[in-house]
């Protein structure tokens, strides 16, 4: 069916040592889209993806992958890049790609031929016969990514794909993800880096504390926050605060505050009349970062940071 989602999860639950690391997550990933799964560290993103792929079984809930409730049965139509990158160091780059294709049902000969082609397209043609151990970390990561798409999957799942890549390789990866979507594949990727999600995602879900907190488009996420105004007066003194909205905070050389619901004109008139004038004014659309912080909660983020080992 054309409208059938490429992947979905309903009430997924996973407990480790009695703790619910995933607690009733619902996701719907439309076919042919780039879908981001966002969340702070320890939010349950990886476990959710693993359950959806059938690597681990959920304690409760259902999942569908490419129209099948047994994910492993459609394994040959799925590509997966785990968070922890892993390749055999003694394998040549083209062999590693062909090997990953073979695991997904692609014959070795075709796998090797495609590997060489893909490596050349990615600017790594010179590394085709190099052993993995001789490649840089970024190159090895790209090789693994190519291995996850060599069999031309209908669904590509990437767990923290940008982690550890330099900006040049991050850009290459973004292009590659878009190319996969343009080819007709559905791409799910998890990340905690908002900029990538903002640039790439057609839809996204935000997970925190094992629960889904949001699902929608990037615009929907931003829409959960009001616009902000950044106002710079000609001169500043203690009296200006009384004229500004209650949430006004000093920002750079001026003030930042939520755009009043009735509009900003009346406020500006009051400020001009009071002699503060307008040295600068900009209306700021909330970023995905702002939306993420609001949805997840600053406290939860700080907790996630505090749990990081030193």
């Amino acid at each position: 069916m054309a409208n059938e989602p490429a992947a979905s999860a309903t009430g997924l639950v996973k407990k480790f040592s009695g703790r619910r690391v995933v607690d009733g997550v619902d996701l719907t990933v439309p076919a042919g889209m780039i879908y981001g799964v966002l969340g702070p560290n320890g939010a349950g993103k990886t476990t959710t993806l693993r359950m959806m792929l059938g690597i681990i079984e959920p304690d409760d809930g259902d999942r569908m992958l490419l129209g099948n409730d047994a994910p492993r049965e459609v394994g040959d139509r799925v590509g997966y890049l785990p968070e922890e990158r892993g390749l055999y160091p003694a394998m040549k780059a083209k062999e590693a790609i062909a090997f990953m294709g073979a695991l997904r049902g692609l014959d070795w000969k075709t796998g090797r031929a495609r590997a060489i082609e893909m490596l050349e397209d990615a600017g790594l043609g010179h590394a085709a016969d190099e052993k993995i151990r001789k490649l840089s970390k970024g190159m090895a990561q790209l090789v693994q990514l190519l291995g996850s798409i060599v069999h031309r999957p209908d669904l590509l799942v990437l767990d923290e794909p940008f982690s550890g890549l330099d900006p040049v390789n991050q850009e290459k990866l973004e292009k590659l993800i878009r190319a996969e979507r343009d080819r007709g594949a559905t791409v799910i990727f998890s990340t905690h880096i908002m900029a990538h999600a903002e640039r790439l995602c057609d839809r996204l879900a935000i997970i925190a504390g094992g629960k889904r907190r949001f699902e929608g488009t990037v615009a929907d996420a931003r829409g959960t926050l009001p616009f902000k105004a950044h106002y710079v007066p000609h001169h500043d003194d203690g009296g200006i605060k009384a004229l500004l909205p209650n949430d006004a905070e000093r920002a750079d050389d001026g003030w930042r505050f939520t755009l009043p619901e009735e509009g900003i004109e009346a406020l500006l008139v009051r400020l001009i009349d009071a002699g503060y004038g307008i040295a600068g004014l900009s209306i700021e659309r909330p970023s995905l970062h702002d939306a993420f912080v609001r949805i997840v909660g600053r406290e939860a983020l700080e907790r996630a940071l505090a749990e990081e080992p030193a």
Binding site: F16, N41, H289
Partner: peptide
């Protein structure tokens, strides 16, 4: 093996819980 391995998201690395860049 299935029970013992793949239990979590792997060894935690020092990284920002959220990074905007």
């Amino acid at each position: 093996f299935r029970r013992g391995v793949l239990k979590s998201g792997g060894p935690r690395r020092k990284k920002a819980a959220i990074a905007n860049g």
